[in-house]
């Protein structure tokens, strides 16, 4: 459903992504790991066109993304950020419903109904009237996920969802991601939570210096890594 071919992204002199090739099947759960600055986030941002690729092709459902209007593409490809990026001036319920209402994808009643249902499922109903700054990090991230889910995206790109959270909140968010994945959502997750990665992923991709170094099932990556760079990365993370 998603195909990345020879993707290059440079910022001036710096090459953030160097010839990335990637295919994602419907329903697949992919985890991307790697040291910071290796281009993981940039890859996600190129896929949903927050950054324009320098060269290379990205295809969504067989169509090149540069031929699709960015805002149409982004309704299909949701994104979750490390820093949540909830809309600070809106209450939680409005954060979730503002986009479907303004884009006329739903009536106000439909949007609120659906939002309340999702909030109920995540036990966040009592936060509906609060502002983002009144919520904990974990709650904000779960609201951000609801905000994306209400639009029923086909793919979720998730950029270090737990990077700014404390351990307790991390557990909640990871559990939620797992529940979503069980419903068949296609997901690409950048994370440093190796434990989560090992049981969650259908496929793990290790990136370094803008390249995909190794890709494989979690066993191949974690139990029996052959690549030297991957080995040294894992040993650093585990200590």
């Amino acid at each position: 459903m998603l195909e990345v071919k020879n993707l290059v992204k440079s910022f001036g002199e710096i090459t953030a992504l160097n010839n990335i090739n990637l295919k994602v099947k419907k329903g697949e759960k992919i985890i991307i790991i790697g040291p910071s600055g290796c281009g993981k986030s940039t890859l996600l941002r190129c896929i949903n066109l927050l950054e324009a690729p320098t060269s290379g092709i990205i295809k969504y459902e067989g169509i090149e993304t540069k031929d699709i209007k960015r805002n149409h593409l982004n309704q299909k490809i949701g994104m979750i950020f490390q820093s949540y990026n909830l809309f600070n001036h809106l209450t939680i319920i409005k954060n979730i419903t503002v986009v479907p209402i303004k884009l006329k994808l739903m009536t106000k009643e439909e949007a609120y109904q659906k939002a309340y249902k999702l909030l109920d499922e995540m036990k966040l109903r009592d936060k509906a009237g609060r502002y983002p700054r009144e919520l904990s990090g974990g709650e904000k991230q779960r609201v951000a996920i609801i905000r994306s889910l209400i639009l029923e995206p086909e793919i979720l790109l998730i950029d270090e969802p737990t990077g700014a959270l404390d351990p307790e909140n991390i557990k909640d968010v990871l559990k939620l991601l797992e529940e979503i994945s069980k419903k068949g959502m296609t997901m690409i997750v950048v994370t440093h939570e190796m434990n989560f990665a090992s049981y969650f992923a259908d496929r793990i991709i290790f990136m370094d210096q803008g390249k995909i170094i190794v890709e494989g099932k979690s066993k191949e990556i974690f139990v029996n890594p052959k690549n030297e760079r991957l080995k040294s990365f894992l040993s650093k993370i585990r200590t």
């Binding site: 927050l50 805002n71 949701g78 950020f81 990026n85 600070n88 303004k102 905000r147 639009l151």
Partner: peptide, 23 residues
């Protein structure tokens, strides 16, 4: 205004101008 606000708006399918106006 934090850049993430614009990015979040865009990533949810709003255009640049819609994000500007509402967010």
């Amino acid at each position: 205004v934090d850049k993430g606000q614009m990015e979040a708006g865009k990533s949810l399918g709003l255009t640049y101008w819609e994000t500007m106006r509402y967010i």
